[in-house]
Nucleic acid binder design. Structure first.
Length: 330
RNA sequence: CGCGGGGUAGAGCAGUUGGCAGCUCGCCAGGCCCAUAACCUGGAGGUCGUCGGUUCGAAUCCGACCCCCGCAA
């Protein structure tokens, strides 16, 4: 009998009326999902809430969040409060049946969570209850997980503690970085969002509470968190570099001509050594390739960037900076 | 006027007590070799970011501007 319901478009509970939804989100991560929701005839996005326009870049140009541009293109009203609680009244007046929150960068207070009858739905970039918190994508790479994924959940007042509606897994490839996974997961989330919401609204999904005993939290990354610890093994550092790419970027520092120079390592590959004969952090040539001695084994550097310089391949780097070989990275 | 680094051959860099523009790699030609991304010989390729100033003479000193990048946000 459930087959009949879905064949009719799953509109048993909503009749001919569309589901009134408010979409809350800010960065690129949320745009594929917003696009899907706009295109789906069964939902009516009555408003989009996003962060205020912020100054961006060296020139400090005031730039609207990506979500705002997409909303305006589709003639959807945009709200940009400093704090979401400032617009509680407006949200109430919009009479949403559903609110979707994706990467908004603010905690949604309980008052607002209680407004829509279907609750507030969130997409999180990990397989909850693993990696609750801000740097969930990076954490999966850092820990060497084989898989990660997205979780669609019904938000409650805790941080990423809501009951789960659906999850979808994805393999973490050796070549994946936080940047590449970010993109894949944002698309994966969008792919499952509309169908999951429909099933949920039609009562075909019962939210499944998380097992808190398996939960762990990962905090927001800071620039300084990108500093490489060369005492770790090459394999760990390789994962670290992928996890920190593109932000905050994995870097090492080097004293050169009495100045401290930061070097970003953008891509590298671990390589096992038969003898670990160099000092930890020392740059050396291995088969004419630039490598660094780690706590165990070595890391062959593929791509790097000096302060004030563009990113370059290590082969090009060596042509101009031959004298860096033998120096020790801090 | 947020702080800082930089623009020199196709690529990455050196060259600032002003005095013929260099290195590594790549490219082209030839040579060696069973052979080669190895080696040897020769060669092409630059208005030294732009404009102006100082000077007998500026990549180098002075001024203005353009562009790239790191930090901070």
């Amino acid at each position: 009998m459930s087959k009949n319901m879905s064949a009719k478009g799953g509109s048993a509970s909503g009749g001919k009326n569309k589901v009134r939804a408010i979409f809350i989100g800010t960065p690129d991560f949320a745009t594929p999902s917003l696009k899907v929701m706009i295109d789906d005839k069964q939902f009516d996005i009555v408003a989009v809430v996003t962060q205020p326009d912020k100054k961006v870049g060296r020139k400090q140009i005031i730039t609207p969040p990506p979500i705002k541009a997409l909303a305006e293109k589709n003639v959807i009203p945009v709200l940009q409060p400093e704090k979401i609680s400032d617009i509680e009244f407006e949200i109430l007046n919009l009479k949403p049946d559903l609110i979707i929150v994706i990467a908004y960068a603010q905690v949604v207070p309980e008052n607002i969570l209680n407004i829509p009858k279907y609750g507030v739905i969130n997409i999180h970039g990990s397989l909850l209850p693993k990696y609750r918190g801000a740097s969930c994508i990076q954490a999966a790479i850092l820990n060497g997980d084989k898989k990660t994924g997205i979780t669609i959940m019904k938000m409650d007042k805790g941080l990423d503690t809501g009951s789960i509606l659906a999850q979808s897994e994805i393999d973490i490839l050796k070549t994946d970085t936080a940047g590449s996974l970010y993109k894949k997961l944002s698309e994966l989330g969008a792919e499952f969002l509309a169908s999951t919401l429909k099933k949920y609204i039609n009562g075909k999904i019962k939210p499944d509470p998380q097992d808190d005993s398996l939960a762990n939290y990962v905090g927001l990354l800071k620039k300084q968190d990108g500093k490489i610890d060369w005492n770790k093994t090459a394999v760990e550092i390789e994962r670290f570099i992928c996890a920190m790419y593109p932000w905050p970027g994995a870097f090492a520092s080097l004293n050169i001509k009495n100045k401290k120079l930061n070097i970003k390592i953008l891509a590298a590959e671990s390589e096992s050594l038969s003898i670990n004969k160099y000092k930890i952090g020392e740059l050396f040539l291995d088969n004419n390739k630039l490598a660094v001695q780690c706590g165990k084994d070595s890391l062959v550097i593929k791509k790097l960037q000096l302060e004030g310089k563009k990113e370059i391949d290590s082969e090009e780097f060596l042509r101009g900076y031959k004298n860096f070989v033998g120096k020790i990275l801090d």
